[in-house]
Design a protein around this nucleic acid. Structure first.
Length: 112
DNA sequence: CGTCTGACGCACG
DNA sequence: GCGTGCGCCAGAC
């Protein structure tokens, strides 16, 4: 299976700390497919169906916009989960995005 | 096999 | 700051 990319995405997303978020591009770049940011979202969408639960709600686009909230069954669910973690969201956008942003390449420091 | 679509990102104007 | 166009890879038809 082409689990390479998929598994990598799952792994990174699962490593996202509580109350932190990251962007599709950051994940894609960390994996090595910086230009395949769309694939990240696509894989996460599949992850919702998979039994392997990943904090997909902690992944937003580069603008901190909850673009994927629409795929959580109920759009309000994603925002609720994030707010439950202390993330401030207004108009489907993370206000303190740069504050709660979690950069895998930086935080992980390629220590793998 | 050709074409469209998609939880994105970037360049341009 | 916003709308439009293109690239990217994989899947559905």
């Amino acid at each position: 299976m082409k689990r390479d990319f998929t598994d990598a995405v799952f792994d990174v997303v699962r490593l996202i700390p509580f109350g932190r978020v990251t962007s599709y591009g950051a994940i894609a770049k960390h994996i090595g497919s910086a230009q395949s940011s769309r694939m990240v979202g696509w894989i996460l969408n599949k992850s919702l169906n998979e039994k392997d639960k990943v904090p997909a709600h902690r992944v937003v686009n580069r603008s901190g916009l909850l673009t994927g909230k629409n795929s959580f069954g109920e759009p309000n669910k994603m925002q609720t989960l994030l707010e439950n973690e202390g993330v401030i969201i207004v108009n489907d956008r993370i206000v303190n995005f740069k504050t709660v942003f979690w950069n895998p390449s930086t935080e992980l420091n390629d220590s793998f």
